[in-house]
Design a binder for these strands. Structure first.
Lengths: 76, 76
DNA sequence: GTGTAGACTCCTGTCGACT
DNA sequence: AAGTCGACAGGAGTCTACA
């Protein structure tokens, strides 16, 4: 398939920013979401490509709307 | 992992709605996105769990922001 | 035009261990 | 606390074909 752009990096940076705002460590956050710590690490660094179900649990873990994780919006 | 809810179904219904608004058939839309037609069919019916990169190409194919595809927002 | 099924490749998501 | 590696099962994404 044809990967549009650096969506993963943008998403990851956004996730990291929101997680830090909530004052959680990667590990504490991963536990709260029921996800693996190393996987969350990969997502934040843009080397992983999570599914929308994972996006859902991440948003829930942060206590924010899903849209908050995508508020960088489709780059060229 | 722990699937939060019917995110896939909500996303799929939303995608279908936006696609129909744009007047495209599943096939024409899939071609425009560079995705497989049967896969788009699966996404719209909520039986598939796309990655955020696929979400990006779907949004681009529709000419909308990624947020538009998630404007149902995290169900309980 | 759409839904489904089967078969296939490659990656998502989990885990343990070391830095 | 966070990055990275190797290994693994299961699922994402493609394709062909029929209803």
């Amino acid at each position: 398939m044809k990967t549009t752009s650096g969506i993963r990096s943008l998403f990851g940076a956004n996730l990291k920013r929101l997680r830090l705002q909530s004052g959680l460590s990667q590990e504490a956050f991963a536990d709260k979401c029921g996800l693996d710590r190393t996987y969350v690490s990969g997502i934040e660094r843009g080397v992983r490509n999570p599914t929308i179900e994972v996006v859902g649990v991440l948003a829930k873990g942060l206590g924010v709307a899903i849209n908050a994780l995508f508020d960088f919006d489709s780059p060229p």
